[in-house]
Design a protein around this nucleic acid. Structure first.
Length: 293
DNA sequence: CCGCGGGCCTGAGAGC
DNA sequence: TGCTCTCAGGCCCGCG
């Protein structure tokens, strides 16, 4: 599923079940997701309390009382859901499995809060890793990731500096996690539409001659922030896989202005354009060729 | 250094 | 109904 708004939605959903709770029992139904699970995965979690639940880019990070950090990535199709222990939908219960999807319930975290946290991932592009807290700064998966787009550090000056001298286009730059964290195909398309910038536009053209931000860079940063805030408030976007942890769908997909709207009218008032789908770096890009320049 | 294509997996939907 | 083909929100690697 998951880009920043979906991962943040999941983080918020997991908090009441995990924050301050212990892993009473962990069931790993497979020994690998995208990568092999850490050695002794269940044993290293069991008995630990979750002292904090954070997010960095598209990663969830659970701080454990052992001093380890549990790093979780949802890949393309990973999701978490919560079930009350003893309730009908809870694994181990008489009625379970009840969804045809249950074969992809790979990890079960039975928490001392009474909740069971279930990680489901049909495509198994997701993965988990345990990292000692003091080694987190050197963690290769996180080290190269750029600033959080909703944080104070990220601004037009930073984005322009990252684009300066680049030969590539805006779509590629915004999709690059080293430039800015957490954007994926959907929110890159939506942010570019809101900033009225074409995804094919050369990235360097949002910097002025000195490499400082121009009006385009300012518009782009504002658009990125705006679309992410709105999407988080809507519980993310549900296309195929993403659900909130309570099983409800996000609803931001109803507010897409270009994504998956190929051939439909541009929503900009007075624009006569039609949304176009092109392929960049092997992925679909949606944009209005009339009002995005 | 850069961009691109392939690979990792499974499932959904379209077309025949 | 069922086969085959394409596509999917991420990310890493190797190639040229």
């Amino acid at each position: 599923m998951p880009e920043l708004p979906e991962v943040e939605t999941v983080r918020r959903g997991l908090e009441p079940a995990m924050q301050g709770a212990r892993f009473a029992k962990v069931e790993a139904r497979r020994k690998n997701l995208r990568f092999p699970l850490p050695a002794n995965f269940a044993a290293r979690l069991q008995g630990n309390a979750v002292t904090g639940l954070g997010r960095r880019a598209k990663y969830l990070l659970a701080d454990l009382s052992s001093g380890d950090v549990l790093l979780m990535h949802l890949g393309m199709s990973g999701s978490f859901r919560l079930a009350r222990r003893g309730a009908a939908e809870t694994p181990g219960d008489f009625h379970y499995p009840r969804s045809k999807d249950a074969k992809h319930d790979h990890l079960l975290f039975h928490m001392s809060s009474g909740w069971t946290v279930i990680f489901n991932d049909p495509r198994r592009f997701g993965f988990m890793k345990l990292v000692p807290r003091r080694a987190l700064a050197d963690e290769p998966l996180l080290r190269a990731i750029g600033p959080e787009p909703l944080g104070n550090e990220f601004d037009a000056g930073l984005l322009a500096a990252a684009c300066r001298g680049k030969k590539t286009n805006l779509k590629a730059v915004l999709s690059d996690q080293k430039v800015v964290a957490g954007l994926g195909n959907i929110y890159v398309c939506e942010a570019l539409y809101r900033a009225r910038l074409a995804p094919t536009r050369g990235a360097a053209t949002i910097a002025d001659r000195r490499g400082g931000p121009n009006a385009r860079a300012l518009a782009l940063v504002a658009a990125i922030r705006e679309v992410l805030h709105e999407a988080i408030a809507a519980g993310g976007s549900s296309l195929r896989d993403h659900r909130q942890t309570n099983g409800e769908l996000g609803y931001f997909q109803h507010r897409f202005r270009v994504y998956d709207r190929a051939g439909e009218r541009c929503l900009t008032p007075s624009c006569r354009g039609k949304v176009r789908r092109i392929v960049q770096a092997g992925r679909s890009t949606f944009y209005c060729p009339v009002c995005q320049r």
